[in-house]
Amino acid sequence: MRAAVYDHTGPAREVLRVVDIERPEPGPGEVRVRVHVSGVNPTDVKARSGQVPRPIDEFQIPHQDGAGEIDAVGEGVDEKRVGQRVWVWFAAAGRRWGTAAEWTVVPDDQAVLLPPTASDELGAMLGVPAMTAHRCLWVDEPPDGQTVLVAGGAGAVGHFAVELAKWTGARVVATAGGPDQIARARAAGADPVVDYRAPDVLEQIQAFAPLVDRVVEVALSANLQLDLALSGPNTRIVTYSSPEPEVTIRVRDCMNHNVDMRFVLLYGVPRPALRAAVRTITVALTELVLTELPVHRFTLDQIAEAHEAVEKGISGKVLVYLQ
């Protein structure tokens, strides 16, 4: 099969190469998926660049997420799964068989049935972004009826966070930058969308809700003071990213607001919580709650360009097409 691989970390054009390698076979409890579309996430480019280094077992095929069709199953897996359209998550987590290849092999439960109403593109966008959004919203308690602030509501995680929160009946305010991203967050269902660059961003949010119950935070180092100004004793600030690796927290400020702070990295989330995310996302897909982000298409031979697009912060979703 054709696959993108790297055997050491570094810049995309220096370490990524497309090669012909032996197609993997599914072991016990595994399925093999013929990949149609592979989704590229920031976590994938961080692993390849060495920014967040992970062990490499001889070689690494990148990308955690994708969509395709099961064409073989291992021992102990129902043979009726052959032919199912699926979305794949954590394909490269502790394994060499990421989705940037014509085939991947994953544990049975990491290939999830894709409803006929969902496109391969949408399937390849789920995984890391939608499951991160679920964790940020459901950690400790579901968001039903809460008031939720989604920072970066036009990004991949923010997009799915807005849609999932609205689906539960939450009131949702989102921030975004620029007309296109504001329109995208609004289309996802956010009640108001506020330009985070506006000088009166706090006042605009408070006109909708003086305090919020939960913050889904993409940029803690930039937004902490805004988040605290919107926080009360029942508020949880749940962070999954920050532009700066270190954040200075004034303890008294946090105490004054009696705020809870949670941090989310999907790779450390307990397996039962990941399975709960998959179940919720599956129902949301069936009910047509989740929608696609704008697509930027690349071929496997353009794998380096695809990674560079993500590194540059391109708006929308970068997808690599295998079939």
Results as ranks from 00 to 15, higher is better:
Q84E: 15
R81T: 10
H63K: 01
P115L: 04
R96E: 07
R135P: 02
G83V: 10
A111V: 02
D78W: 14
R85V: 01
A93S: 15
P55N: 09
A130M: 01
G66D: 03
A100M: 13
G127V: 04
I61P: 01
Q110Y: 06
W103H: 13
G83R: 13
D140T: 14
P53D: 11
D109F: 06
A72G: 11
Q60C: 13
A118K: 02
G98H: 00
V77W: 02
L137M: 11
P115W: 06
P142W: 01
L126A: 04
R135E: 15
R96Y: 02
D108T: 10
P143G: 03
F90L: 15
V86W: 04
E102A: 09
V105Q: 05
A72N: 10
T147H: 06
A101P: 01
W97Y: 11
S49R: 11
G123S: 03
M125S: 12
A101W: 01
G98R: 03
E58T: 14
P116S: 13
L113T: 14
P53A: 12
P53V: 12
T117W: 07
I61R: 05
D109R: 08
T99G: 12
A133Y: 04
R96S: 12
E102K: 07
V73E: 03
P55M: 05
V52L: 15
V106Y: 00
Q146K: 14
P62H: 04
Q60P: 04
V73G: 11
